[in-house]
């Protein structure tokens, strides 16, 4: 029984090996290549009306926090970069993750997970920081993933005050049709910790 089964297995293996040899090294990933090329062709053949639509709405950068998709208006952003290192600040609320040094400038980084009451990411999870223009300074927001830049029609947004779906409504400007949550930048920047720092910053120069 076993020997016959082994013989069958070895026979099929030999057959497949023979097929590999016959196909040659170049044709080996032809299926994959075909699929890739097909996907690229589809993307290139995308209709232009997408760009026109984009121009009509406001441009936002979509990102992810704890498997939730959020977005920020592109106009109020200054920079995105990987979050490599930060220094926690003692005596501050939990939602202030810490401070980071960007090209010699000390910038605060907020922890949106803590702010929104979400599950914090794991230690090994790779994170990015989105810097938001805040007057002359910039405030970093930690996110778990960057998606893409897209345009949103402000008229199509749902007001969370009306829908009342239980989210922390203070920082939400609106929710898109595909459950994309557009965050309200001024509300985030109006946090006490930032105001304090802002008061120091404004008084210093």
């Amino acid at each position: 029984m076993t020997t016959s089964r082994d013989e069958l297995a070895s026979a099929s293996l030999r057959r497949r090996l023979q097929a590999r040899i016959e196909w040659g090294g170049n044709d080996r990933d032809s299926n994959l290549n075909t699929a890739l090329l097909k996907a690229r062709a589809l993307r290139l053949a995308r209709p232009r009306d997408v760009a026109a639509e984009r121009e009509s709405g406001i441009q936002v950068l979509s990102f992810r926090i704890a498997a939730e998709r959020y977005a920020l208006a592109l106009s109020c952003l200054s920079e995105v970069m990987p979050l490599t290192a930060w220094t926690p600040v003692p005596g501050q609320p939990q939602y202030l993750l810490g401070i980071t040094n960007l090209w010699g400038e000390i910038r605060p980084v907020l922890d949106l997970h803590s702010l929104f009451g979400l599950e914090p990411p794991g230690a090994s999870t790779r994170c990015w920081v989105i810097f938001v223009k805040h007057g002359r300074s910039e405030v970093g927001l930690r996110v778990e993933g960057l998606d893409s830049i897209r345009a949103i029609d402000p008229a199509g947004l749902t007001d969370p005050h009306i829908s009342g779906n239980g989210l922390p409504q203070r920082f939400i400007r609106g929710i898109g049709a595909d459950t994309l949550i557009l965050l309200d930048i001024p509300q985030i920047l109006a946090l006490d910790v930032l105001r304090d720092s802002r008061a120091d910053a404004t008084s210093a120069p």
């Binding site: 441009q59 950068l61 592109l74 952003l77 200054s78 995105v80 990987p82 990015w128 960057l146 830049i149």
Partner: peptide, 17 residues
């Protein structure tokens, strides 16, 4: 590719600016 994506995002932000 990640770096390129980041660069592209920053470029888009700059362009929006």
């Amino acid at each position: 590719a990640e770096q390129s994506n980041l660069v592209a995002l920053n470029a888009a932000i700059e362009a929006a600016d």
